[in-house]
Design a protein around this nucleic acid. Structure first.
Length: 686
DNA sequence: CTAGGGTTAG
């Protein structure tokens, strides 16, 4: 009779991955052993361990079922490990309990995978029971078992379990290795105990253990969160010195850390240094761009990832969709949405929230609402995204109703979600509602109001014409108000024609931001409107003296998947002649309908006829005229403008919408205006 | 037995 290959020989063959670590080789071995030794428990058990080590679940189970019951402990161990490594925690645990029911004594090799399964199911009671079992069997001093125990208790901590269990296990372990330390450190990071975590990194040196790649990638996110590039760079240096900088895990944490510290250039450097990249490296660099407002660059990396044959996963999409929102690229957003649906990622909350935001920002509020309604679970971010979307489109009552419904469904409002409701109130002139929410935020929810909340209230008071109140409110802020808070009030002063307050506001703005071009322009316009030409001229002159030049307003429109941009008074577009013709025809109609150009707010030093021409060539009108002549009748026209639509254009677009019988959607810096049948969704509320 | 990347912000 042929002899069984010695266990040592076979083990050596297995440990050498080039020799055996393939499915066909395992099958070959399986056949050989069966041929020579038949179906003995020992030989089957050995074959099983080979399959299990290769992670071949199906083959492992086939062999296991061929074993006479009760199977030997080694066979149980193999099956349980194989289940656990496939994420089949429930099956792993079921096997473990069957094994014990059949009177098989578990050895130290089973406990790590069993404990891991308890951890992944977050089954505290079972985990503790298994711990007890390990103690009774006398293997709780085993290194791997101890490490698995600490890992499990660290995961349980998020359920509010015993905070000291990890430490207790750690202290009682007869020996510890790097994994032990890394596990405790990771546990501390997960629980937000950053100080503890870093202290332990230093302490492990005393135990003669050097931090390895696991330690570094665990600890780096701390500096990302604390925005501490100096410490992050130290770790980076350590990684380079130890040759860890080509490690993909370290690479992605470094890219992310630098991005969160606003050092995207360093993120780039790390990314380009990587010897190879996986999906996560790509996601990190895409996220780095997105998070720092470099949306075009983010899209560039996304395309490079596809070119590199790396399949984008859910995280890739949730990082890149915001780029479409900010670039208001509906075309691209829709394409990505299509991909998301085909890949089956549309049930992911992160992706759904970013899609809601994207559609809302691209003018498709109904589509945003549709996505929201069709989500199975709403988290705080998706609620906030839809409330903000409604706010942006002036659907204030919807926004408030949703905000209330959110709380009825047990979701607690946050800092950001209060910005969203307050914005909704602000865009609809709901002063009392806004105060109610502002007070509830501070008193009931103990949220410290930030700049954005102050901005919403100040903007609202200004729009409502309660200018003095707004001024006092801003002055009462606990910190020095930045110019971004004063600017909307300046606009409000112009709209509500309060020259004196405008002067005071201008002074405050120029204190913090002497280069504020907008302030000079607005002041000049405000005085013009009040027919105080001298002062108007004075502001213009002092602007010139400072070498400040007004930046032209810009509007753009997507037609057949291409963006067309128009500057005020721009004649360079290839279709300029046609656009101008269309505008003239429109103007004739508009005036017949009763439109009177309101030239009071601008440029007193030009002829009346010329003023009309200038108004008629404001960027949004050029874009709209282009939209009318280049898209099918009846379809909506969507325009994005980089500053607020002027009062006269607002009036004019109402006429245009009626004359051409089309819905015209204009988004300015702060909100959408839907013009239809001669009316605007904002109800002319400024 | 231990490790990396994500959504909302007038």
């Amino acid at each position: 009779m042929a002899t069984l290959p010695s266990v040592a020989v076979l083990k050596a063959a297995i440990d050498n991955p080039r020799a055996i670590a393939t499915k066909p080789r395992a099958r070959q071995l399986h056949a050989q052993i069966l041929k020579r030794h038949g179906l003995s428990a020992a030989s089957l058990s050995f074959v099983l361990s080979v399959y299990a080590d290769l992670g071949l679940l199906r083959d492992s189970l086939l062999v296991f079922r061929a074993l006479p019951s009760p199977a030997p402990p080694a066979a149980w161990k193999s099956v349980i490990r194989c289940y656990a490594s496939h994420g089949l925690a429930a099956d792993a645990l079921a096997s473990f309990s069957t094994m014990r029911a059949l009177g098989r004594r578990p050895d130290r090799n089973v406990f790590p995978s069993v404990l891991k399964s308890c951890a992944s199911l977050m089954d505290v009671r079972l985990g503790e029971a298994v711990h007890g079992c390990a103690v009774r069997v006398g293997v709780d001093g085993d290194l791997y078992t101890g490490n698995a125990l600490m890992n499990m208790y660290a995961k349980f901590r998020s359920l509010g379990g015993d905070r000291d269990s990890v430490r207790k296990v750690f202290d009682m372990m007869p020996q510890r290795d790097v994994v032990s330390w890394n596990t405790v450190i990771a546990g501390n990071v997960q629980s937000g105990m950053y100080g503890e975590a870093l202290a332990m990194v230093r302490e492990m040196g005393n135990a003669n253990l050097r931090p390895d790649s696991f330690t570094l990638s665990t600890v780096l996110p701390i500096f990302a969160e604390h925005v501490d590039v100096r410490k992050g760079k130290e770790i980076h240096g350590y990684a380079v010195r130890h040759g860890f900088d080509s490690n993909l895990f370290i690479g992605s944490t470094l890219i992310d850390m630098y991005a969160k510290c606003a050092c995207v250039a360093d993120s780039y450097r790390v990314f380009h240094m990587l010897p190879q990249r996986d999906g996560i490296s790509w996601n990190s660099i895409i996220g780095a761009c997105s998070q720092n407002g470099m949306f075009d660059e983010g899209l560039k990396f996304f395309r490079l990832m596809l070119k590199d044959n790396v399949k984008p996963g859910p995280i890739s999409f949730s990082s890149i969709i915001p780029a479409c929102s900010h670039l208001t690229s509906l075309h691209l957003g829709k394409q990505l949405h299509g991909y998301i649906i085909r890949a089956g990622f549309d049930d992911n909350v992160y992706i759904a929230s970013s899609l809601i935001d994207m559609y809302a920002k691209c003018g498709k509020i109904e589509k945003a609402k549709w996505i929201f309604r069709n989500m199975e679970l709403h988290d705080i971010v998706s609620w906030t995204a839809i409330v903000m979307g409604c706010a942006l489109h002036g659907h204030a009552l919807d926004a408030i109703a949703l905000f209330e419904k959110m709380q009825m469904e047990g979701v607690k409002p946050t800092y950001v979600s209060f910005i969203a409701v307050l914005t909704a109130c602000s865009h609809a002139g709901l002063v009392d509602e806004a105060w109610k929410y502002f007070n509830r935020m501070t008193q009931e929810f103990k949220i410290n109001p930030g700049l954005e909340h102050y901005a919403a209230i100040a903007d609202l008071l200004g729009r409502a014409g309660r200018l003095e109140e707004a001024y006092d409110f801003i002055c009462r802020m606990p910190s020095e108000p930045p110019s971004s808070l004063w600017s909307p009030l300046m606009t409000a002063c112009r709209v509500h024609k309060n020259v004196e307050l405008a002067e005071k506001v201008a002074e405050r703005i120029l204190q913090v931001d002497p280069e504020s071009i907008g302030t000079y322009v607005q002041m000049s316009n405000i005085y013009s409107a009040a027919r105080r030409w001298k002062e108007a001229a004075k502001w213009k002159v002092s602007m010139k003296e400072r070498g400040l030049r007004k930046k032209p307003a810009c509007s753009w429109i997507e037609v057949r998947n291409r963006a067309h941009a128009f500057l005020s008074g721009d004649t360079s577009h290839p279709y300029y002649n046609k656009i101008n013709e269309a505008l003239e025809v429109l103007l004739e109609q508009m005036e017949k309908d009763g439109y009177k150009p309101n030239t009071s707010e601008v440029l007193h030093d030009v002829e009346e006829e010329q003023k009309k021409q200038l108004l008629q060539h404001h960027s949004e009108r050029l874009a709209i005229a282009f939209g009318i002549i280049s898209t099918p009748p009846g379809t909506e026209i969507r325009i994005i403008k980089n500053i607020r639509v002027c009062t006269d254009c607002h009036e004019a677009i109402k006429f245009i919408s009626k004359i051409v019988g089309r819905e015209i959607i204009v988004r300015d810096n702060s909100r959408f205006h839907h013009f239809k049948d001669g009316k605007c969704s904002c109800g002319d509320y400024w």
